[in-house]
Amino acid sequence: MTEQSEEPTHLPADLPEGASRRLRELEHGLFTSDLSVNEFLLIKEVGFHPLGFVMGSSIYHIGLQTRKWGASQELDKLTAAMYNARELAMNRMEEEAMELGADGVVGVRLDVNYYEWGNDAAEFIAVGTAVKAEDGASYRNKLGKPFTSDLSGQDFWTLMQTGHVPQGLVMGTCVYHIAHRGLGQALSSIGQNQELPNFTQALYEARELAMTRMQDEAEQLSATGIVGVRLEEKTHQWGSHTIEFLSLGTAVVKTSDEVTLPRPTTIISLDG
């Protein structure tokens, strides 16, 4: 995937050559973005200019980890793989954005693709639109990197009006193996309608772990909080009892107490 370019460039070695050429063009004032006109205008309204469409990709081999048939447990190697792969894709996207001198990336989407040619391999992709503040102030986060967020243009505008600034897309993941019900247990509770404490505990714990890890990431950014948290469950290609719990959200920091959003007025429309 990575072709080493011949001339030494100021780009990180991590990015393919095509990227550097494309990004150099963008530095000359052309911008590309997948923003709608409405989003574009709103981002301009809060003093940002879109710089370009940025992306990062990582094809990762997700191996196997032995699971015990009858035990519920976290599969920490798989958790680490899923996390690292996304982290790599995100980092590359951030590098592209840094290359453009961006303050942040909005509208980030994180996808996982599986291809027929790659057994156990998955492509992790992060795409978004890099933006830069027009007043020259830096909006980079505590780690000196451009902020990332999955907010739409409208959400970005609204968030800024409430005195909050995005810091980064934060995520936590946990791959958990849910025990198959043991024979004795299955016989004793067959057909009954009662709580299954083992299942409750396993699934509850897995979700909490994913959310805790997401929160840890936010704390590293000294965020005030996380908005728009989504919780996703995916079985990927591991069979039904091994599940990835993924928690995603945008970490924000409060910069001013002033809320410039006009107080909403009650509108009841007779429009269908």
Partner: peptide, 12 residues
Amino acid sequence: VVVSVDDPTTLF
């Protein structure tokens, strides 16, 4: 008569 621009949350 109301002219709306796309989404109802942020009308210009």
